[in-house]
Design a protein around this nucleic acid. Structure first.
Length: 221
DNA sequence: CCAGACGTTGTT
DNA sequence: GTCTGG
DNA sequence: CCAGACGTTGTT
DNA sequence: GTCTGG
């Protein structure tokens, strides 16, 4: 699964990969993005052509929820569960790409939980398949999101049996396009090729969600 | 039909 | 054990 | 995802 | 809102 990730590259790298017309001036480097925190997400603008970047709270609140504060808010959606009530509308109309340059999984070693950081072999930015929603009670609006997971590839599989769906750059447009037929979308929801990825032990300090700095990636002594 | 859930992961 | 907060 | 809390009443 | 279980 994916419950923590990183996005530390300069905003230019993000703007280039996702073809953002109006990138923000800056993106604060983040080494420990956790559920309930704001997540940068790329989605088509209303014109359906250009793309925008917005911040969404990680943990999907469907539009029909009675209130946005209580109840379970999924941080992940299994790729084979996208027809379920919680995800159905978002899968059809509110797909997004969530920029990252790595994600964490944990390996239980006795009592300890040892984090491992997975990234592209070239260390670059990539896009994870996500869904978003806007919940409102008429007074307040809350924009939320979640990641889509699939089976792990051979690199991640040594630690966990699930991983986030990573959409190759040439498929970004198809994933975001509202006119892409469902069967074509589903072909995108597969494990990213293991050849393009690598695993690196991370620092257990990352277990604490309030630690945000680059020390998260430094293996413990 | 109505009532009640609506989700994932990992661990046992 | 289970829920909440980050 | 992991870490950390997990509760009430009355009084100030 | 929409699906599942009874």
């Amino acid at each position: 699964m994916c419950g923590r990730f990183t996005l530390s590259k300069p905003v230019q790298a993000v703007a280039e990969l996702f073809k953002l017309a109006e990138p923000p001036a800056e993106l604060a480097p983040r080494y420990n993005i956790a559920p309930s925190q704001p997540v940068a997400a790329v989605a088509p603008k209303r014109d359906g052509i250009s793309r925008g970047l917005a911040f969404l709270k990680w943990g999907l609140v469907p539009s029909w929820a009675n209130d946005a504060t209580s109840g379970y808010k999924p941080t992940n959606a299994r790729s084979d569960s996208l027809h379920k009530p919680t995800f159905r509308e978002a899968f059809r109309f509110k797909r997004c790409l969530i920029p990252a340059d790595g994600f964490y999984e944990w390996k239980a070693e006795g009592k300890k939980k040892l984090p491992v950081h997975f990234r592209m072999t070239d260390g670059g930015v990539f896009g994870m398949a996500g869904l978003w929603e806007v919940w409102t009670d008429g007074t307040t609006k809350l924009a939320t999101c979640c990641l889509i997971t699939t089976e792990a590839n051979e690199v991640v599989g040594a630690y966990h049996d699930r991983m986030p769906v990573i959409v190759p750059p040439e498929m970004h447009a198809a994933w975001l396009d509202l006119d892409t037929p469902e069967h074509e979308l589903r072909t995108l929801l597969r494990p990213y090729p293991a050849e393009g990825m690598s695993a690196h032990p991370a620092n257990p300090i990352v277990n604490r969600a309030t630690v945000e700095g680059p020390e998260c990636l430094t293996p413990a002594a």
